[in-house]
């Protein structure tokens, strides 16, 4: 900004281009027309609802269309004192804690593997990425079948291997301890491909001469990994972790479709509770307040993350 004000007389454009007869500043509005459709949609379906939601959070707005009235901070005080909301937030955090590490670590491992594979590279790339393009409804349906206590693939093989007694099959999706992990495993299988692709792309941009130099110096593969590859992937890791945390905190689809929040609310996550409050309970006002609590939490986590990683960069 300050650079411009220091030397107003020497406009760089004037040096490279012949002076324009219509004036120094040539303005064209054509570009605006191209941006307009998106901008209008963005304003109408994202910006406007965001502010509307904030307004609703101070009212008792109901889905039933009854006239809403201003109730001040009532929704907010209720939200902060709502045990079910906190336990839903805790479940969300739990899911994030369980799912983020494997989604980052496994993605690096698979990317390293594929990066080394010469002949089967194309096949592995496709195999690891393919689940990501499958819609959530299909993914959950397949995994619900896999987890089916009677006759599901998982229990079938566990029984075949003698690990499980056929008389007491594990109820994966409705067991207090197994439900969360079952969804985590499904999510890892489903979304790993995206992180894997980011890592693979990053790996392929590393200059091979760096490795060459390291080999000449006698560095083993492990040393190269620890002191060259991983440090060079740091920016990608930062990006992946931020994206992953946001995605995990927003978990809803898989939980809703696979466990419906069960057993006994053990997998009821924040967005699911917002859904229940808003659509089953018709309380749009209260659901808006809950959404804002989650929104602020995600914002804080993202900012902290971003700060942490950008500081390391320096």
């Amino acid at each position: 900004m300050t650079v411009k004000t220091e030397a107003p007389a020497e406009a760089p454009a004037a040096m490279t281009r012949p002076p324009n007869p219509a004036g120094a500043k040539k303005k064209s509005w054509t570009g605006l027309w191209f941006v307009l459709p998106f901008a209008a949609f963005y304003a109408l379906f994202l910006v406007w609802p965001t502010f509307l939601g904030l307004y609703y959070s101070f009212t008792d707005k109901s889905l039933t269309g009854r006239p809403a009235s201003w109730i001040g901070l009532d929704n907010w005080t209720e939200a902060f004192g709502d045990e079910r909301a906190w336990s839903a937030l805790w479940n969300t955090a739990e899911f994030t804690l369980y799912s983020t590490p494997p989604l980052v670590v496994l993605a690096i491992v698979l990317a390293l593997l594929v990066n080394r594979a010469r002949k089967l590279g194309w096949f592995l790339r496709m195999a690891f990425f393919a689940p990501f393009v499958v819609p959530v409804s299909v993914v959950t349906m397949i995994w619900i079948w896999i987890y089916q206590p009677d006759g599901g693939l998982l229990n079938h093989y566990l029984q075949l291997l003698g690990i499980q007694d056929a008389a007491t099959p594990t109820i994966w999706l409705q067991g207090e301890t197994t439900a969360m992990w079952s969804v985590v495993i499904t999510t890892v299988w489903w979304t790993l491909g995206f992180n894997f692709l980011l890592y693979l792309a990053a790996l392929q941009t590393i200059d091979p001469s760096v490795y060459e130099a390291a080999s000449i110096d006698g560095a083993s593969w492990w040393r190269q990994l620890a002191h060259l590859t991983l440090p060079l992937l740091k920016r990608t890791t930062g990006l992946v972790i931020v994206l992953q945390l946001i995605a995990s905190l927003r978990i809803f689809d898989q939980m809703y479709l696979m466990t419906a929040g069960g057993p006994n609310r053990a997998t009821e996550v924040a967005i699911h509770y917002i859904y229940i409050a808003g659509f089953e309970g018709y309380r749009i006002g209260y659901a808006s307040a809950l959404s804002y609590v989650l929104f602020v939490l995600i914002l804080i986590v993202s900012i902290v993350q971003f700060r942490l990683f950008s500081r390391k960069e320096d």
């Binding site: 109820i171 409705q174 067991g175 929040g261 069960g262 057993p263 006994n264 609310r265």
Partner: peptide, 12 residues
């Protein structure tokens, strides 16, 4: 329903 499911599952 989610409570009765736990009863059938002998978890409650």
């Amino acid at each position: 329903g989610s409570i009765f499911n736990q009863v059938y599952g002998l978890a409650m």
